[in-house]
Design a binder for these strands. Sequence first.
RNA 1: GCGGGCGUCGCCAAGUGGUUAAGGCAGCGGCUUGUGGCGCCGCUAUUCGGGGGUUCGAAUCCCCUCGCUCGCCCCA
Length: 441
Amino acid sequence: MTKLQSLRGMVDLLPDQTRRWQRVEKIARDQFLRAGFQEIRLPLIEATELFSRGIGETTDVVGKEMYTFLDKGERSCTLRPEGTASVVRAALQHGLLSQGPQRLWYSGPMFRYERPQAGRQRQFHQIGLECLGLSSARSDAEVIALAWSLLKGLGLKGIVLEINTLGSAEDRQKYRKKLVEWLSTHIDELDEDSQKKLQTNPLRILDTKNKATKKLLNEAPTIQSMLSQESELRFTEVQQLLKILEIPFEINHQLVRGLDYYGHTAFEITSDKLGAQATICGGGRYDGLIEQLGGPSTPAIGWAIGMERLMLVLEAIAIDEPNSAASEMAIPTNPELYIVNRGERAEKTALLIATKLRENGLLVELDSSGAPFGKQFKRANKSGATLAMIIGENEIEIGQCRIKHVKRFSDQEIDQALSLEDYESLVKFIRNSISNSSTKS
RNA sequence: GCGGGCGUCGCCAAGUGGUUAAGGCAGCGGCUUGUGGCGCCGCUAUUCGGGGGUUCGAAUCCCCUCGCUCGCCCCA
């Protein structure tokens, strides 16, 4: 029999990982809350059409990376490859846009059928936000600032914000024409891949990694030259605002992004600690998408952070700097109290006490092995608990339990006898002992 | 979809054609049903990702396949 294992590109997150994930998610949630963003939870499966219409037929995501299948009713269904299209769909379906601008965030798994590599999985997780119904350059700057301060707040170093403008739809139309004309005269100098894109999606030739093509592109016309005055002013304003916010950025006119719906501001945040897949956060303005999906013409902007990539960076930092916040996010939460217990009556009492103490907010691990005391103490030690409570037959006889420090051995044992029934005093005593123990150490 | 590297226990590994596949860590049990950091003893891969072939003999050689990994494409 072959060993059962997870599907290619599908990754399990074990407790070692989930600790850090939960802490990151909490920090993100708190920040979204403070910024007035509300959570939206969406299905993982959508009608295929949502993505083909929303993201663009010629994009790689739609063209070759979607998990698409027919359900039992013969409907074409797709595991969502990204979050924005679903957010827009939900907003339209429930009439959210008629209630004014929407500030929404989401998190969860996305699916793309690609060959896995460093920082890339078939099921991966994004945490993202979308701001629907606002068109100002200020909203661009605010949204970018949220991504930046979240990443900075998590302690990331060596990250770079790159921005570009893709202009209005008309600007892009004109530029596209000009670019195709120019590239056509240099078609022999283009790499094979870019030659194909010339037909399907010429703008995406701009962010090629092919060195020869890159060099050639230095001579090519830029989108800047084709911008309308409004588009140009808008981009300038975004830059000014980022400067006021003291967010460092680089302008990268080659930054295009692979989803068709982007226009005007597009941006990426990359890290030097990742391999070839260096983008942690990507986003931009998508003023045309909502209308394209059948809604009213509505401006919008958003971004998504790749959780796995973020975690990779955090792990790298944690290794470089063992005392950093990034490092602390991996430290497990140890029990405050470990209950060592043995004997029929003692075991019942211990279960009851564990429950009561937990109800009072303590972090309690109960040894339910029935093993000899020696074994239980070993486990108490390994659990990392601050205190151990001992309940055996003797304690039951006198109606008192004993509590001692786990981490300090012979010195400074508390080893106090306490009533088994007075939970209030127990809790108080435990709390005191823990705070004393942490101030002393 | 296309290239490169790699698959020996939960983890790190030795072994590169010859009888029973080292070792370390972790785990489990014992010394130790009333007290834990240490120590000592014992146990833990009928099998080397899987399948086929070559051979008297294969973890070692060949073929296929699966998986992992890095890169291309693209993206988070």
